[in-house]
Each structure stands twice: as C-alpha cells, then as structure tokens.
Write a protein that binds this DNA or RNA. Structure first.
Length: 201
DNA sequence: GAGTAGATCCTCT
DNA sequence: GAGGATCTACTCA
C-alpha cells in the first residue's frame, strides 16, 4: 500500500477528492500498534461558502485554524463533549476545505479497536459513524494539525476502487442548522455497505 | 421499529 | 452561558 501524496489533497475540487477517498485506507500506528480501515463514507465541507462548515464566511478561530493550512493534514475536533471527529484538510493554504471521514470498514487491528471501544466482539457498529471510528482508531483532538504523510497517521492507496455505480451522493447528516446548505448532496458512501451510518437497509 | 432524552465539555459569543 | 459535523439506551407500540 502506498501513502497518498500531498498532491492528492491539494486540489480544488473537494467533491472529487471525497469520492476518490472512498475505498482508500486510513491507518494509525500508535506505539507500534497498527489499526486500519477502508473508507466507506465521507462528507465534503466546501470552505467559506458552506454554511455547515466551521470555516463558513471566513471564520477563523484557534480551533479551525488547521482548516486554513494546506491540504494533507488532519483536522480533529471534539463534538458534543464526547466525540472526536476526524477530518482531512484539502486544497491550498487559505482555502479551508475539509472532508469528514464518517465510516470505515475495519481491516487490521480489530482486537485493538475493540479494546479501545470497550466491546467484546466485532460488529458493524465498531467503525460506523465519525465518533466511533475515531475512537476505534485512537484518534483524538491532540492529533489535529498532524500531517497525513507521517508514519503514525496516514491514508493509503489500495488496489480496490469503487465504480461510480456503487457510490451514492446524499445530504449530509446532523447539519440541520445550516439551512439550505444542509440539503446539498455532499455526503458520499458505498451503496449497501453495513458500516455506512444512518439507517441500515 | 420508531422516536426521544441524556451524556458531557470545549469553543465561541 | 449556550450549543454542537454524535451515539446509545430506553420507551412505547
């Protein structure tokens, strides 16, 4: 497997990147323990013009400063005081685009993930939903700003790619406060995958 | 199966 | 001082 180069992230079309991230593999390696999973669901956040984005209207705070960095770094923040949400920053410096990783299909280190989450056995809830997958992979807000080129946290290319037929675009989840922008089809997922959040089939 | 309340704390106003 | 890019468990049917 090959680590995705920064040129993958540093492109203008965040939706294109989001689609291409489906099927890629997120890998974390903390203290020599590897956990990884294949991306099956993402959401795109389209910079300053997107009401659902933390960077809407050019808002810039200590928390979202990372979004203004050049593409290829992690943006992690705490939601509802409980959940760590893992995002990937894209595009150039000063263009605060980001892609939220919403669901993974576990590949390596499932035992370790179970231990982190406190479960006995593996099921489809292990890495379903952004809060759960961050916990399973051991990603915390302290990793915000980390480069995705590091050996500890990165996204890699796998042989597998999904065809357009298998990818569904739909409105994003949990962004009702964004008004009209909440209806935009900026969420992409693999059709029929049990790890995709929301209603099972 | 569907709907809802509660957890819980950092961040911005 | 309010609220959030969520999740789980519990209720009611």
């Amino acid at each position: 497997m090959k680590i995705l180069p920064v040129s993958f992230y540093q492109r203008e079309n965040v939706f294109q990147i989001a689609r291409e991230l489906l099927g890629k593999v997120v890998v974390t390696k903390w203290n020599k323990v590897i956990t990884s999973g294949r991306i099956v669901e993402v959401e795109a956040y389209n910079g300053v013009i997107d009401k659902a984005s933390h960077a809407f209207g050019g808002r810039r705070t200590a928390r979202n400063e990372v979004m203004y960095a050049e593409g290829g770094v992690a943006y992690v923040y705490l939601c509802y005081g409980i959940h760590h949400l893992f995002n990937v920053v894209t595009n150039a410096e000063e263009e605060p685009h980001a892609i939220l990783i919403r669901a993974l299909e576990p590949i390596k280190g499932i035992d370790e993930m179970l231990r982190r989450v406190g479960k006995e056995k593996s099921d489809h809830t292990l890495t379903r939903g952004p809060g759960n997958l961050s916990k399973a992979l051991g990603i915390f807000t302290s990793h915000s700003g980390n480069s995705l080129q590091s050996k500890k946290l990165y996204i890699a290319e796998d042989r597998i790619s999904f065809s357009k037929m298998e990818i569904i675009a739909s409105p994003r989840i949990g962004v009702g406060y964004a008004g009209k922008d909440a209806l935009l089809p900026y969420r992409f997922y693999i059709i029929g995958n049990p790890f995709v959040s929301g209603k099972p089939k």
